[in-house]
Design a protein around this nucleic acid. Structure first.
Lengths: 346, 346
DNA sequence: AAAATCCTCCAAAACGTTTTCGGTGAGACA
DNA sequence: TGTCTCACCGAAAACGTTTTGGAGGATTTT
């Protein structure tokens, strides 16, 4: 394993100092065009590649976004983090940055804090996703002066940015949609309580129901933990107890799928007897029978915008630290109108 | 933005040399227990974090796997690379490595070669996935002495490792399954020609058909390019022309879904009139109607095993450079028996 | 003709570590 | 008393860059 050529070797062959080589390669003006050509030729010839590690060490910057995320788990059924990662990379490429991932597994004993990770790698800034706000490590990041933007987590501090859809508005929109179809008794299957998006979506549901003077009953909101199986079991229990509810609005597609399975098992027809709607628009949502009416999020865009905001913060630009990405209500086939002539389940 | 503390600061406060600090922190034996305690305390107090960049520079190794992959694109409907990445991280954590991703986009003008990337970052070795073998940059990697393992690409050189399922056997198994259900006229929807897995799956199909003396016709193999839409259009053309074929075996789930959609549009019932099978077992496959009979691959395991093999190669262990991960035929509802009483389409 | 300017280049310091080699003092052994 | 061993520690080199602060010569300006 012979060592790769370094700048010294190039300098030696070109008969110049390493300073000149460095300047030539980095496009500084004060180097003779002829010398530059010669250096370039030698660089090419011996396959010299500047060592980014050494460069990063001396310049004290890494041109690298950190991406700290939880939820990179085996057997995941959605592509959310994939999309997000892809968006981050898309922007990073535009500005010549790289990205360094740090997946944190809730199961793993976290011996390394986010901060430690960031400093070890001279990260220019970090993007956090799927991280709990009450986590001790995130506090450490918030209170540091490391540029930082959050995805799907509201930022309380002013130094840190955040990007997400307007969860409350989207949630209200979905509830309103169901209401407009004639539904009154609408159950809401929520996700984990700890997640900020859960409370926001709950708020949206509540305000829409209240606005329409629809029955707002505590026993109409179920806890599905963002889990297909749990939502399935909850629905299995809930649906027979409440034949008067004609719609179940779920805070995630996976939970909606669980609810639809429960309905199928109970002999309840979707959407004829029960409308079911989801949230996220994961790939599966388009392929279920019936296909899922849901709120579409652009997770790619979330990643892209988060990276862009982080970049602006790093550059010291004065930029709004709150970005709402667009959402869209995707009307498919899992929800229908009550006036459509379909009998209520009662 | 005050600079983070460095080893010199710790040494100054502890009243020892930086050598001693380094030794204390890295667990070398020749440092007094009392001094070590003191150093640890100071480290904790001022929040000192060793700089991995500097360390990597001097040790000439980064304890980092490179993951070079193509196919990280917006709107992807499967979780293959996600699973793979997850597997790589799982192993990396076990051995205290990190992973550095390098997504290559076929659309992007690749101004940086894989080799350049690897050397820039002092990578210990790289894992390649979804990369074409005839690509100029992969040649560069193969012929270098950089430890390297390929996923889903057969390795011709002996220095490089490779991991994948036994595509030929799996493909033959699926074909045999269809044959055992009484099908004789089986179409095969293949993926991109450039992909190694395509030719292997084609071989499996051919040998199984040949073994059963089933009709092997060139016009029974379609080119779906691993694309749902293309497979859909191909099926739309092919199915009416060939009412005698009772089964379509597709080299990917997405193509199978495209074929099923075409069948639905043509009024052909699946599986009653046409059996359709896929390959991969992506999440969607379980949620289509009918659910997809397919070959299950463990992409997580692919990543995990690739990382393990790479690690062994880096360590200089003499280890088999070819690993076949298990596959499984998942019998769901998109394929049925001809004897089952269902009429042929003819 | 002297002075100022410009172009091209170089020596050396710096970034934050690890590692090699050697030094000091204390106790053990002859 | 002299030497050897051992535990502990430090000075300095090294990793491969970038950047600072000029130096030397040629060219232009005054």
């Amino acid at each position: 394993m012979n060592k790769p050529a370094n700048i010294r070797e190039v300098a030696r062959r070109a008969g110049v100092s390493i300073t000149t080589v460095s300047r030539a390669l980095n496009g500084y003006p004060d180097v003779n065009e002829e010398t530059r050509k010669r250096i370039m030729a030698i660089t090419e010839e011996i396959g010299y590649i500047p060592n980014a590690v050494a460069k990063s060490l001396v310049t004290q910057e890494s041109r690298s976004f950190g991406f700290i995320l939880s939820g990179l788990i085996r057997g995941s059924k959605h592509t959310i983090i994939q999309e997000c990662l892809c968006g981050i990379y898309a922007f990073a490429r535009e500005v010549g940055y790289e990205v360094t991932m740090f997946p944190v597994d809730s199961a793993m004993q976290l011996k390394k804090s986010y901060m430690q990770f960031s400093r070890e790698h001279n990260l220019a800034g970090v993007i956090l996703q799927g991280i709990r706000t009450d986590d001790e490590y995130s506090r450490e990041v918030f209170s540091s002066d490391l540029p930082c933007v959050l995805i799907d987590i509201p930022a309380d501090r002013n130094r840190v940015g955040s990007v997400s859809i307007d969860n409350e508005a989207a949630s209200a929109a979905m509830t309103d949609y169901l209401l407009s179809q004639g539904h009154r008794n609408i159950a809401f299957v929520n996700g984990k309580e700890a997640a900020a998006v859960s409370t926001q979506r709950y708020e949206g549901y509540v305000s829409a129901m209240r606005g329409a003077s629809a029955p707002l009953r505590w026993d109409y909101v179920l806890n599905g933990e963002f889990d297909e199986e749990i939502a399935y079991r909850e629905a299995l229990r809930f649906l027979p107890e409440h034949p008067e509810v004609t719609a179940a609005y779920c805070a995630s597609d996976l939970m909606a799928i669980g609810v639809m399975r429960a309905a199928a098992e109970l002999g309840i027809a979707v959407p004829e007897q029960l409308s079911v709607t989801g949230f996220d628009d994961i790939p599966i949502a388009a392929y279920t029978t019936p296909s899922l009416t849901t709120i579409q999020q652009d997770f790619f865009l979330n990643g892209y915008e988060a990276a862009r905001m982080l970049y602006d913060i790093i550059q010291g630009k004065d930029v709004p630290h709150r970005k709402k990405t667009p959402h869209r209500l995707l009307e498919r086939n899992s929800a229908g109108s009550i006036q459509g002539g379909s009998p209520l389940r009662t």
